[in-house]
């Protein structure tokens, strides 16, 4: 641990501000709480929101896991993990089951989460209505009045253009029957994991300066039409490494001839599964 920084990089007043915002976010599930987002030693879009939330949460006994698109070994994940190892001296892990705080970009781990775990999402655009309604004052009013017909316009357009709801990530959800919420750009495959999750889910958008939360065991409904219900992605393949037929698969090109293989996006899950198979 580098002693020249305060514990977990942020000063205590900033953490206090963040914690107050987080408490409000938990109290009003799905509601976007504004907060004073700080400059962080990484660029916007690399997880400045998530990293601030994590910094406000961490205590010396926490065990941190960081994933990027499900993998623990990609640049973003490695850097953020190392950042907190240096500034907070906390233990880090690649094992989902061992972590108390998991910061994630674009995935929810395959291994079911527990009540004593917190998942922190990095969010590029917290406003699900933004592409349809550019005015912030208007989207806030729409949230205040639960006036969400517009969101279905987007889903309608999907079906009209592609024959099915083609939105495959950042699929809009209604939290606790009240607030329309962006689940961050996770694949819609992960949406069912949000519903009644035992783990607390926190979302941080650094550039947009917004926090929001899905408390444990909260109802999270993915929007759909009666005659076009919500569906998740399915693959004809199984993971080429561990053989799992249940996980979210990445398609990987393995040579110059265009040969492809499908592997688990969650590296920890894949490894565990493989070990079990071998044993």
């Amino acid at each position: 641990m580098t002693p020249t920084y305060n514990f977990a990089f942020l000063d205590e007043n900033t953490k206090r501000m963040l914690r107050r915002a987080l408490l409000k976010a938990v109290a009003i599930p799905g509601y976007q709480v504004p907060f004073g987002s700080r400059e962080m030693p990484l660029p916007y879009g690399w997880g400045t929101g998530g990293i601030q939330v994590t910094a406000a949460l961490l205590g010396p006994d926490d065990v941190l896991k960081v994933i990027d698109q499900g993998a623990d070994d990609t640049t973003n994940a490695v850097n953020i993990r190392r950042f907190f190892a240096r500034t907070a001296g906390v233990a880090t892990t690649e094992r989902t089951a061992e972590a108390s705080v998991i910061q994630t970009r674009h995935r929810i781990p395959e291994t079911p989460l527990r009540e004593d775990q917190i998942l922190v999402f990095q969010v590029p655009e917290p406003e699900p209505l933004r592409t349809l309604e550019p005015r912030e004052a208007e989207t806030r009013t729409m949230h205040a009045l639960a006036d969400y017909g517009l969101m279905h316009v987007k889903l309608y357009e999907d079906i009209a253009q592609y024959g099915h709801i083609a939105t495959s990530y950042d699929y809009p959800v209604l939290v606790d029957g009240r607030f329309l919420t962006s689940p961050s750009p996770i694949p819609k495959f992960d949406n069912p994991k949000l519903d009644h999750s035992p783990a607390l889910m926190l979302f941080g958008a650094g550039r947009e300066k917004r926090l929001y939360a899905i408390p444990p065991y909260t109802q999270v409904e993915s929007l759909a039409f009666d005659d076009h219900p919500f569906e998740i992605q399915r693959w004809e393949h199984q993971c080429a490494l561990c053989g799992s037929g249940e996980s979210y698969l990445d398609e990987v090109v393995v040579d110059d001839c265009g040969t492809r293989m499908f592997v688990c996006s969650d590296t920890d899950y894949c490894g565990e599964h493989l070990a079990e198979a071998v044993a």
Binding site: G149, L150, H152, V153, Y156, I159, D226, D227, H228
Partner: peptide, 21 residues
């Protein structure tokens, strides 16, 4: 930025109609 059909259907969706067909 959305199709003619979505323009017509928007008000119906705002009233809660959820049957695409």
């Amino acid at each position: 930025n959305v199709s003619a059909g979505a323009n017509v259907a928007e008000r119906l969706m705002a009233l809660g109609m959820r049957d695409y067909g």
